[in-house]
Amino acid sequence: MIGSIAKLWRGAAATCVFELRRSMSAQRISVTAGLALFPPAMLSLLLFGAKISNADGGAQMIDSAQFLAIFLIALVLLLGLLLWATPNVYSELEGKSWLFIACRPHGRTSIFLGKFMASVLVSLAICFIAISLCVLVIHHNNETIEPIKLWLAMNFVYLLATLAYAAVFSLIGVVFVKRAMVVGAGFLIGFDVFLASLPGALINRFTVRHHLQEIGIATMGWFFPTPAGSESEYRFIYGQVWPTWIHVTLLLAATIFLLVAGVKVISYREYATSDQR
């Protein structure tokens, strides 16, 4: 048992390292750097525009800088994960390397877990750079915030977000294969955004976003740029508070569940290579 787990871990780690190494092309590095720098650049531009504007909207935007940063980083995180995690099987089938990997005792599980690890590492790197620069930009425009506290809280929330969404997209990648990216985007818009926004519905508790939102509120108050009256309205819509540890545990449990489900699917599913389809 321990031997099997060690071999599985070795295969997944080898796949992760190989994936990162084969991605060291100028194109991939540029895309990754672009994703990391987009949120702070966009935030700087918006806040610069707000600062030179005398309108009320400008002052409101500076108050909402934290929310803007969270939104922009979430955008690039999800885009990065869609690009990295979703085509886990499809890229191998299209690249015609699937058979080389699948005909190894640990090939299928290694490719699933290894690509999950690689997508998490790359996304965390993107988030880390984006969060660090965004916190600097926010602090520069609004000195009332505590930058270290905000930086730690954001990194914690995005760590959980990266693990959970990478697991969701990895599972979508092994189930839907050919249209995995479309299904992944559809899942985000249709399920995770729409259902999580349904007022008072039990189903929003099954979305990743709901739990992240609750952790974000507990650690950063992220949906309350103008505190007066906001929290009572929010609770009226989204229900009562659960302790933060429950949300964290649920997200980690969901991540593990999704990974186990993905391993089962990839291990026992037929994948026809392009010359057979």
Binding site: G95, K96, S97, L99, F100, C103, R104, P105, H106, G107, R108, S267, T273, D275
Partner: peptide
Amino acid sequence: SQLLRRVGLCPSLEVN
């Protein structure tokens, strides 16, 4: 899949 430890496959597909 453990049986695959005893098999070596060279597919016709081009490695890329």
